[in-house]
Design a protein around this nucleic acid. Sequence first.
RNA 1: GGGCGGAUAGCUCAGUUGGGAGAGCAUCGGCCUUACAAGCCGGAGGUCACAGGUUCAAACCCUGUUCCGCCUACCA
Length: 933
Amino acid sequence: MSESELSKTYHPSGVEKRLYQYWEGRGFFAPVMEKGGSSYCIMIPPPNVTGSLHMGHAFQDTIMDALIRYHRMRGDRTLWQTGTDHAGIATQMVVERQLEAEGKSRHDLGREAFERRVWQWKESSGGTIVQQLRRMGASCDWDRERFTMDRELSHAVTEVFVRLYDEGLIYRGKRLVNWDPVLRTAVSDLEVLSEKEEGQLWHVRYPLADGSGYLVVATTRPETLLGDTAVAVHPEDDRHISLIGAKVILPLTGREIPVIGDAYVDPEFGSGCVKITPAHDFNDYAVGERHGLPVINIFSPDASINENAPEVYRGLDRFAARKKVIEDLEALGLLDKVEPHELMVPRGDRTRAIIEPLLTDQWFVKAGPLAEKAMQAVTEGRIRFVPAHWEKTYFEWMRNIQDWCISRQIWWGHRIPAWYGPDGRIFVCNCEETVYELAAEHYGAPVALERDSDVLDTWFSSALWPFSTLGWPDATLELETFYPTNVLVTGFDIIFFWVARMIMMGIEFTGEVPFRDVYITGLIRDAEGNKMSKSKGNILDPLDLIDGIELEALVAKRTRDMMQPHLAQRIEKATRKEFPQGIPAYGADALRFTMASLATQGRDIKFDLGRIEGYRNFCNKLWNASRFVLMNTQGETNGPHPGEEFMSVADRWILAKLKRVKVDVTRALDEYRFNDYAHHIYQFLWGVFCDWYLEMVKPVLYGEDVAVGSKVAARATMLGVLEESLRLLHPLMPFITEELWLRVAPLAGRSGESIMLAAWPVEDPLAAHEELVEKEMDWVISLVTTVRTLRAELDLPPGKPLRMMVMGGDEAVGRLERQGRIISVLARIESWSRVGEAPGDDHAVGVLEDLRLFIPLSGLLDVEAEVLRLRKGLEKLEKELGTVEKKLTNPSFIERAKPEVVEKERAKEAELKEKQFGLKEALRRLEKMGKAS
RNA sequence: GGGCGGAUAGCUCAGUUGGGAGAGCAUCGGCCUUACAAGCCGGAGGUCACAGGUUCAAACCCUGUUCCGCCUACCA
């Protein structure tokens, strides 16, 4: 490849798709099963098949891919198991909406045809998110992609259901459950979101049956009055205690219901009397059980009033019924008063419909025994949360765990493997043929069975994901190799939905935890800290950050398909203001690097476009540094290495720094400190390699009097360091590192088809002589910086060569002598000389440790300004010296602090004093001079 | 009500076992220096929310307070 192929700036669009196709086509993502040694596996949290990639995915996928690529490079048998989730309710809703557009309902099709239709939809439109994952550079093993409705996974689901049923851990029962009247299905309590809303509190008079007056009860849901079966008061409430046992007439129905005493009532609230509706409130249900109250269900599955209510209300929707009940009460003079009242309203997370507690037959998983073992796994350290504090959340929920309602009254999902005999007897079996045999055996003759029409909660199959995808219940090689998996990367919002349930199921069915570590990520928010949501119009699409998007397209995208069209205008305005130029294409690597650099443990993330721009620039920096290296090595002799004696101190120094960054980066990855990983490699490549080393190497490369061996050594070092750095960066920036590595590696004497298959750099500790080299060059850098600062402060043109005089100890002067060439180039020192005493005319003074620098200004020195500058420096220094001396004069510090700390302070004091002396000396002379003139 | 988290530079945030307050962005000054203006060089900027305590030493440990988030349960 010729250097002309590297453009002056990095253009990710020309690189990413090509390289991804290369990797995928060559099968680089699949684990090498024959290989021995350790294995490494991550299960992707299967995204909804209906979904598209959002920032949360981009974040988590970056982290997973970085870990996967890192371990693959370390030589582990590495599997990133991918796939999607059938998302029962969401998917059914999507397809029903399509049918609706054709003027049909799912009932017109019938169950089987509807299921076929969903499969069709899945084949044609379900692949969006997995294609988007590829754009992120995700190195999942696509040949092993799974879908929770696949035959093998469905088999695992049935198997688990049957075993749990046989163990008595699954049961069917009539219970009050959360009912979504729009979907007409039960949902679990986790799928209900309660939010504060403005409502009203109606105070209703309930006449006493003996005609002696009335009680007032307050309610936020007057329509449920029709199902009341008691009025409760607190048993120690003096105002009402005499009424316990009395009867009241339930308005509008004429039913007589008792007044009961129950400590559930808060005497302080309202009138101290509560209406009890066991069929439509979870608390009331409990009260009803305690007092043996009848349960009157007044709602149909669509939440309209049923035949248990007086005829005038029947068929009314619950909101219409409320209106009529209020009107009727008012007409009867039974409405005492109405107050505004803030209350928590439960809504379905999919439909936003108000959830209704409803008494129905459902299937439940008995959670207690499973939770017990799942908690143990964490207390015993077999599972570790990162950051650790999330285990508190986990325990909190596990301790209060409720039985899990797993049946859903929808069509899309795993059908419950239960059949009912003619007498209602339940047969649960993993095989449809066998179940008829079982029934025949039971009844003594073949009978017709009816299969339960419900399907299972999607999370039921997700809970099995870590082992069902590996072939369970068969004892497969994959299961043996990769289970338990190493780490689960996910958001805290599904710790309950998914993480806890995977742990319960994993332990129950494999005897092993499903994963060792759980890395919990924060939530990605917008720049203002708001949650990203369609209705707020503040969503950023990861693909738009990669590819860029024009303003008009962005506006159109954000305002399309709005649930509340009136918000569109505001969103458009905000979008135009925030992105007046649209969004530029930053590339996948910049996005990934940004995600990692923001991934600090245990905090939400405000996504800042400034960051991604900065990391796009970093890509460009790396690109150009590589361009520089290639320009200076292509067609040149870069090896064999001529031997250590030809290596410059700069060469040795950069190798020492590389050793350090290898250790830092590896540790950061091992500890899930992705921000540290990003920071260290960024700092090394930009702040050390580019800013210093490449500048130091230029005089060697370009110098005419430099030995050939030195030039070869410099080129070899430059190539070697770049090549290893690319490998260190690869897990985070797969594309640009591959593109560069394929050109750099051969020059560095490495071969290989891909950087993703290259070995992770070996870490080894710094030797003593390397630390000395490091120290010397660090000192050189300080010196160069001191001169540059002097220049800037004295307004000396950056390009103007300077003469310099120095006064100081032998070590400093020795360093100066050894590194004179580098210093003269980097600091633009034309010549320097050592002097025994400070020069007598006007010189600017700089101090570095015990070394004093004098820059002659040939009559240009502004004495007053110089005095001011030095005083300022002195002031700052003496402040620092003060705190150090305070410590050292404190006897208890000397006595009680660790010796190395005391030593450090002493050294610091000495260093500061040297510098103080230098500055004072300079000031004294200047002030004398000032007076003289 | 219960639980969890947060408050550090103008902004967004790091800060590992207690031991010299950091980064990026923004800002100011100077540079088109032969890899890179998506760049280079330099500077300024902090009462680590507040009040106590422990310690030779506290951004960090303990107690309390204020404010801000999130989760969870709710008073009908």
